[in-house]
Design a binder for these strands. Structure first.
Length: 842
RNA sequence: GCCGAAGUGGCGGAAUGGUAGACGCGGCAGACUCAAAAUCUGUUGUCCGCAAGGACGUGGGGGUUCAAGUCCCCCCUUCGGUACCA
């Protein structure tokens, strides 16, 4: 008997697939398409860890399965290769980021190919390829021409540690989400994309995609639509006014003061002389306050009176105007009317400052807390609104305001425009030129791509301008027509740019004349299944949807949404070990001691915990090691066998060993005999009814599990099949072949090898997926459990053809059942399922 | 605080309202072996019992049902997301 030599088998088939371009796909209108896409990786210098291939394996299994079902499968892979790590490396070493990137891509490709993933490698590209950058810039120009890209002097999130600005979405609690570096506010001229123009469609079209509800909810909350009204307030004894946004215009009679955000432009104009020092101090302090501090909702509310009053448009009452930082400058109009009776924040503020609280919606006790019910509450103390319920009162007052031109119903969004420029080197240059007056000129499309200049230093300039400003020659361009000297934009695009449209380029990646052909886009799009981590729930997925909608409006794509179905795989976790001082230890430095762990060299007790894999925790598992020891097929199998794809799961080496054992059992099943070749167990005899039942049930179960992406239970079915046939002396050829086809998507190398051993000359990649026949799934006899008052008291073996009445009679007469019925009256008796009889006595 | 997901053996996990724990890991026993490893076979929720068998058991508490891990109500814990958005 030969041994299962996974290394040789896997090398042979990987070479065969590459050489024969087995997984090359082309537009073919005669066949149905299936576009299955992985979120492409940033090729870091560390290479893959075993978390990456989880999603890749799942999509690969589906790709292989869909091919066997006759689909024309588009399954591409590429590299999201612009980004900061390569740039930092370049700053340190002086090497060009492109060199580093290209090395990393080679490594990622090697690792991915070593897993036998069936990508169409003819479609591979990197977002940093000039050929790709050209079209990224081209799309940017389309946005620019539509007025969706504009420069603005804005308060930005400046990260001193990185020397660049960040998008709102990249900052949380005043820190950069990736590194935790603090972020501060600065005013700078930046390029913005008008994503807010698409807020409503980005929200509404979520209804039409098959995404996890959680992700949809996160996007909806990020967009943050709220319906309300804008109301204009005049400042008493002056000629200025300001507008507030409120979702509760019905409570207008309950407003007892107004608040302006510290940033509000009106503050300095209306402040009274005696209040001015206090207000100016407060505004300054608010500006100096870090985002971390301002984001702290638990802290006491603060604010100062301006000395000015606003006039409530509904009743002419004078309301004091305050400045407080609980009102945000960037949302709505940066000003509110405060209704402490019915808004908890206003209530807190009013209580702290001794401002009056008035009840205008009955149902609560506004002395104790704000009453915020907005459905059944009835308006009081509100003139024309008295007696109305909240929804009716809202409609009524909006109408009243509109008739008098004092306000109007509006919809507001939390979503802000997308800050789209970065002060970095390793990104796409903007295809834009500035003249002396500061007017912007688009680079003609024929001159794209605008390539990055070569620099000898990738740091920002001494005076804080982006690295591209170092390339003085590159920056100066002479207009061929006017002879005028123009200056290039020295900001670059954020890393999100490249990933906003790569799924479209994959449809037609070698097109030299356009970003993609209509033919390819119409055939392949939309992406039928998109698999990746949930960490991109808002950022990438919102940005890509935005670009896609712009492209849709331009007639360049034919679907409203790019990703029809989205699936988020869970995280792969791993055990990590810390000594009593909290220092992390490698797996090789610790050993088992009873139920716990100890340091191998010193015997000191060690704390073990399951955590996210990371370099700093010393618990990263490298797929190269796993492939070497157990093989790519075992690696793939284990990634899927660990548990449901969407859950977080801990990696254990025992687990992958188990999957390796299973594959070795399969190998043994087919090859066990003296010498080489096929096992004598494989027979030409026809399958018995029992064998047919086994194989047809397996086909059915595996097919249904694949349909639902339940890979773990699908693999369990394959294991059950092998456990069963291992007990039998013969394995009919037809049964063996069906099994190999079921195994093929999961463990393709071994399946190919054994397929060949059975005498087939070609790859099984395009063999038909086996079909099951319900008639064969049936068995001649089955077990029936008999429950008495919900507890199983007996099981009987009955002929499958027996009718319910007969089975019931057998159950009632069974010797283990009768004692439970004695002296009781039968209240319920029924065969409630093929395998269950339920009896109730009392 | 709010939104979302999840709590099942020693571990990863399985289970259209119908025999809880499939499948795998780990453990135990046996076969093979001079021996070990590998492999194969059996066994393995907990408690009581020699056994037959019984009781208990899916985070906790109620409820619906002939029947609840699954459906309903309340609560606890963990993990993600979000946070003064008027």
């Amino acid at each position: 008997m030969s041994v299962y030599d996974h290394a040789a088998i896997e090398a042979r088939w990987q070479a065969w697939w590459l050489e024969h371009k087995t997984f090359k796909s082309e537009v073919d209108p005669t066949r149905p398409k299936f576009y299955v896409l992985d979120m492409f990786p940033y090729p870091s210098g560390d290479g893959l860890h075993v978390g990456h291939p989880e999603g890749y394996t799942a999509t690969d299994i589906l790709s292989r399965w869909k091919r066997m079902q006759g689909f024309n499968v588009l399954h591409p892979m590429g590299w999201d290769a612009f980004g900061l790590p390569a740039e930092r490396h370049a700053v340190r070493t002086g090497q060009h980021p492109a060199e580093i990137t290209s090395r990393n891509c080679d490594n990622f490709r090697r690792q991915i190919q070593s897993l036998g993933l069936s990508y169409d490698w003819d479609r591979e590209f990197s977002t940093t390829d000039p050929d790709y950058v050209r079209w990224t810039q081209w799309i940017f120009l389309q946005l620019y021409k539509k007025g969706l890209a504009y420069p603005a002097e804005v308060a930005v999130n400046w990260c001193p540690a990185l020397g660049t600005v960040l998008a709102n979405e990249e900052v949380k609690d005043g820190r950069y989400v990736e590194t935790g570096d603090p972020v501060e506010k600065r005013r700078m001229r930046q390029w913005m994309l008008k994503i807010t123009a698409y807020a409503e469609r980005l929200l509404v079209d979520l209804d039409d995609v098959d995404w996890p509800e959680g992700i949809k909810t996160m996007q909806r909350e990020w967009i943050g639509r709220s319906e309300g009204a804008e109301v204009r307030f005049n400042v008493a004894d002056g000629d200025s006014d300001f507008t507030v946004f409120t979702t509760r215009p019905d409570t207008l009679f309950g407003a007892t003061y107004c608040v302006l955000a510290p940033e509000h432009s009106l503050v300095s104009r209306i402040v009274s002389a005696d209040c001015r020092p206090a207000v100016e101090a407060y505004v300054q302090a608010a500006q100096a306050k870090s985002d971390v501090d301002r984001a702290d909702t638990a802290r006491e509310k603060t604010g100062v009176f301006t000395g000015a009053y606003a006039v409530n448009p509904v009743d002419g009452r004078k309301l004091p105007i305050w400045v407080a930082d609980y009102v945000l400058g960037g949302y709505g109009s940066g000003a509110i009317m405060a209704v402490p009776g019915h808004d908890q924040r206003d209530w807190d503020f009013a209580t702290a400052m001794g401002l009056p609280i008035v009840e205008v919606v009955s149902g609560g006790d506004v002395l104790k807390a704000a009453f915020t019910d907005n459905e059944d509450g009835v308006l009081v103390n509100s003139g024309l609104l008295d007696g109305l319920k909240v929804p009716q009162a809202k409609a009524r007052i909006i109408q009243w305001l509109q008739e008098r031109d004092l306000g109007k119903g509006v919809v507001n969004y939390k979503l802000r425009d997308w800050l789209f420029s970065r002060q970095r080197y390793w990104g796409e240059p903007f295809p834009l030129l500035m003249d002396k007056d500061g007017s912007v000129h688009a680079v003609p499309e024929k001159d794209l791509p605008v390539q990055l200049p070569v620099l000898d230093n990738y740091k920002p300039t001494e005076d804080g301008r982006p690295p591209l400003a170092r390339a003085e020659e590159w920056c100066r361009v002479t207009d061929p027509h006017s002879g005028e000297v123009l200056f290039r934009e020295t900001n670059t695009m954020p890393q999100w740019a490249g990933s906003c449209w790569y799924y479209l380029r994959f449809c037609d990646p070698r097109n030299q004349n356009e970003a993609w052909s209509t033919e390819a886009e119409r055939y392949w799009m939309p992406v039928d299944l998109y698999v990746g981590g949930a960490e991109h729930a808002v950022l990438h997925l919102l940005y890509a949807r935005f670009w896609h909608k712009v492209l849709f409006d331009l007639g360049l794509v034919h679907t409203r949404e790019p990703f029809q179905r989205l699936f988020n795989q869970g995280m792969i976790l791993a055990e990590s070990y810390r000594d009593p001082r909290g220092k992390y230890l490698k797996r090789s430095e610790v050993e088992r001691e009873g139920k716990g762990w100890k340091v191998a060299s010193t015997g000191e007790a060690v704390e073990a915990q399951i955590e996210k894999m990371s370099k700093s925790r010393l618990n990263v598992v490298n797929p190269d090691d796993m492939v070497r020891q157990y093989g790519a097929d075992a690696m793939r199998l284990y990634e899927m066998f660990m548990g449901p794809l969407d859950r977080d799961k801990p990696w254990t080496e025992e687990g992958i060993r188990g999957c390796h054992n299973f594959l070795r059992r399969v190998w043994t099943l087919f090859t066990e005999r003296e010498g080489e070749g096929l096992s004598q167990r494989i027979s030409s005899a026809p399958a018995t009814p029992e064998q047919l039942a086994l194989v047809h049930r397996s086909i059915k179960a595996v097919s249904q599990d694949l349909e639902e992406m339940k890979f773990n239970t699908g693999i369990a079915r394959l294991m059950e099949f092998v456990n069963e046939v291992m007990k039998q002396p013969e394995l009919p050829r037809e049964v063996a072949e069906s099994f190999l086809l079921l195994l093929a998507p999961f463990a393709p190398h071994l399946a190919e090898e054994l397929w060949t051993l059975l005498g087939h000359g070609d790859s099984l990649a395009y063999e038909s997926w086996p079909a099951w026949d319900e008639a064969h799934c049936r068995v001649s006899s089955l077990e029936v459990a008999v429950q008495v008052n919900g507890k199983v008291r007996a099981t009987l073996q009955v002929d499958a053809g027996l009718d319910d009445a007969a089975v019931l009679a057998l159950a009632l007469a069974h010797e283990k059942v009768t004692p439970w019925l004695e002296g009781k009256s039968l209240r319920f008796s029924k065969r409630v399922a093929p395998g269950v009889v339920s009896l109730a006595v009392g």
